[in-house]
Structures are given as structure tokens and as C-alpha cells.
Amino acid sequence: MSIQHFRVALIPFFAAFCLPVFAHPETLVKVKDAEDQLGARVGYIELDLNSGKILESFRPEERFPMMSTFKVLLCGAVLSRVDAGQEQLGRRIHYSQNDLVEYSPVTEKHLTDGMTVRELCSAAITMSDNTAANLLLTTIGGPKELTAFLHNMGDHVTRLDRWEPELNEAIPNDERDTTMPAAMATTLRKLLTGELLTLASRQQLIDWMEADKVAGPLLRSALPAGWFIADKSGAGERGSRGIIAALGPDGKPSRIVVIYTTGSQATMDERNRQIAEIGASLIKHW
């Protein structure tokens, strides 16, 4: 067993022997301040990774656009098919120029040779490549099948209805392509620590998230040296922004954090800054 596999296998073990965790309302004060600064709703939840206990939450059962955070769930569904012998990570998928959609920095470079399922998941999570996500959605049967996968996990809230990039439209009061912070946090925890996926697939999923290259201005910008984070960000229309993450000190994750916002007129930089400040408060009061 590799060191990384050992780390993920012992996530519940280490967490069980940690000192009790206590909620700190100071972080919620910052979440509410972010709402004021952005002029928009902000949803927040913080779960203990081992027990699933909610440590703090704000608007945990209000719907927010998922945006690209759905790509972690998508690759979880792909990995479940791999575990069941219905898919192979090494299978190569070929596609054409007509398949390319807006923001496809990886797939646009491989029109000639195609990409493997493993490479597509890596591109979808680490670079948020939209064509990679659409190609992977095709392998599982489309958005409705991802929703069905989530329902089978016990998540009857999260739903995907459309493809990239239309799913980022974020129309107010439109339930399409949305989740709730509580539902997303619980589902992410199941994917990373539950028995739904094999140990190898859980490790692969967290490795992809740990290698995320496009979430630097968010929670990662607030992390002290030595902290662990595996995350996936999302951005959408109407001032929408979000991030889902597993993080913790001492090089291992111990909490799940989900943050979503929508309806702001603020710039992307300002949305990023507010999420980073929430992260800084979380870490300060850990």
C-alpha cells in the first residue's frame, strides 16, 4: 500500500482519535458579512469528516447552483462504474471539434489522439474542462443518470439537468442544476469515506481534487503551510461562485467545507476574496 493510499485508508482512524471539535460562531459572522459585502445569498456548511456531524452552517438547506462543483460527483459516478466493471479508466475516447464547448483548455489539445477516461476526469476536476465533463456525462448516460446515481446514494436534493455550459445559467428560483450545502457536503463525505467506492477509487477521487489547479484564489489562499486540501470550485452566471473541499491540518483532511453564493453584482475577484476570507476565519478558529 502506498503512503497516499495509507493516508486515505486511515482518515477515519486518525479522526477518531482527534480531540473533540467545537464550532466557532466567528466564522458564521464572516459568512454573514460576506453576504453584506456581496449583496447576495451565501450558503455555508462545515462537517466533521469522521462523524458527519454538522459543526457550523448557514442557509444549509437553500438551493444554490452547483456550477462546476458537480464534476466531482460526476467522476465519482464514473469511478463507481469502474468498480462495477462497467468502465475502464484506460479506455480512450475520441471526439471532434464539434464536441468542444466553451472553456476546454485540455480537451482542445487532444482532438487528434483523444483522451482516456482517467485523463478526462483529471481534466474535468483539476482544470474544470467543460468538454471533458460533457464527454464523461455521455459515458454514464447524461445528466439524468448522474441525478439517479445521487438518488441511489441517498441524495434526493442534488440534481443535474443540463450539460456544460448551460448548467451554469443560475436563474433565480430555478431548481435545475442545483444542490443544497448540506446535501453536497453529505454526498461528498460519502464519496470520500464511505463504502460506495473502493479504496482505490476513493484515493483516485481525492487525488484529482488535491491536484486542483484553478481554485488557488479561494480556500487555498488562506491555508497555512502543512495543511491538506482537496477541492473543486465552480463559477456561473449572475454572480455565482462555489467551492467544495476536504481539508485539515497535519497533512490530512478532517472536515468537509461547502460554500456557495449566487445573485451578486460583485466582480469575480471580490467573490473570490470573500470566500478566501471565510476560509481564513475557519482556519483561525479551527
Rank of each mutant, 00 (worst) to 15 (best):
H24I: 09
P25N: 14
K30N: 05
V31H: 00
K32D: 05
K32Y: 09
K32H: 15
A34W: 08
E35G: 04
Q37L: 14
Q37M: 15
Q37G: 13
Q37T: 14
A40Q: 09
R41E: 05
V42F: 11
Y44N: 00
Y44F: 11
I45Y: 14
L47I: 15
D48Y: 02
D48S: 08
L49I: 15
L49W: 13
N50A: 13
S51D: 15
S51H: 09
K53P: 05
I54C: 07
L55K: 08
E56V: 07
S57W: 09
R59C: 07
P60E: 13
P60F: 08
M66Q: 05
M67R: 01
S68Y: 01
S68Q: 03
T69F: 00
F70G: 07
K71Q: 00
L73Y: 06
G76C: 07
A77N: 10
R81C: 06
R81G: 07
R81Y: 08
V82D: 05
V82T: 09
A84C: 09
G85C: 07
E87V: 10
L89D: 05
R92K: 15
H94D: 09
H94A: 10
H94T: 12
Y95H: 05
Y95R: 00
S96I: 12
S96K: 13
S96W: 09
S96V: 13
N98E: 13
N98K: 14
D99Y: 07
L100D: 02
L100R: 05
E102C: 06
Y103D: 05
Y103E: 04
S104K: 01
V106F: 08
V106W: 08
V106A: 11
T107G: 04
T107L: 08
E108N: 14
K109N: 15
K109D: 11
K109I: 11
H110A: 10
L111F: 11
T112K: 15
T112P: 14
M115L: 11
T116N: 09
T116R: 05
T116Q: 09
E119C: 04
L120Y: 00
A123H: 03
A124W: 01
A124M: 06
T126I: 08
M127T: 14
T131E: 05
A132Q: 03
A133N: 02
T138C: 10
G142V: 03
P143D: 01
P143T: 07
K144W: 09
E145Q: 12
E145M: 13
F149R: 07
F149G: 05
H151G: 14
H151A: 13
N152Q: 13
N152D: 14
M153T: 10
G154F: 03
G154P: 05
G154V: 03
D155M: 01
H156R: 12
T158Y: 02
R159C: 07
R159M: 07
R159I: 06
L160F: 08
R162Q: 08
E164P: 00
P165V: 09
A170G: 13
I171R: 15
N173R: 11
R176L: 08
D177Y: 04
D177M: 02
D177L: 00
T178K: 01
T179R: 03
T179S: 09
M180S: 15
A183T: 12
A183L: 07
M184I: 11
T186V: 15
L188H: 04
R189V: 10
L191T: 06
T193L: 12
T193A: 13
L199G: 13
A200C: 15
A200K: 15
S201A: 13
S201I: 04
R202Q: 15
L205T: 02
L205G: 01
D207M: 15
W208I: 03
E210Y: 14
A211E: 15
D212N: 07
D212A: 06
V214K: 06
A215M: 04
A215D: 04
G216R: 08
G216A: 09
L218Q: 02
L219D: 01
L219G: 01
R220V: 04
R220G: 04
S221K: 12
S221C: 11
S221L: 09
P224E: 06
W227F: 08
I229W: 03
A230T: 00
K232I: 02
K232P: 00
E237R: 14
R238V: 10
R238Y: 15
G239W: 03
G239Y: 02
S240C: 08
G242V: 00
G242E: 00
I243E: 04
I243A: 04
I244V: 15
A245D: 00
A246L: 15
P249A: 09
P249V: 07
P249I: 06
G251Q: 11
P253D: 09
R255F: 03
I256C: 07
V257K: 02
V258E: 04
T261Y: 07
T261A: 11
T261G: 04
T262I: 09
T262H: 12
S264E: 06
S264T: 12
Q265E: 14
A266K: 10
T267D: 12
T267I: 09
T267S: 14
M268N: 08
D269K: 10
E270A: 15
R271F: 05
R271Y: 04
R271S: 09
R273I: 11
R273A: 12
Q274N: 10
I275G: 01
A276Y: 11
A276V: 10
G279V: 05
G279I: 06
G279N: 04
G279L: 06
S281H: 13
L282I: 14
I283D: 01
I283Q: 04
K284I: 09
K284T: 11
W286I: 04
W286H: 05
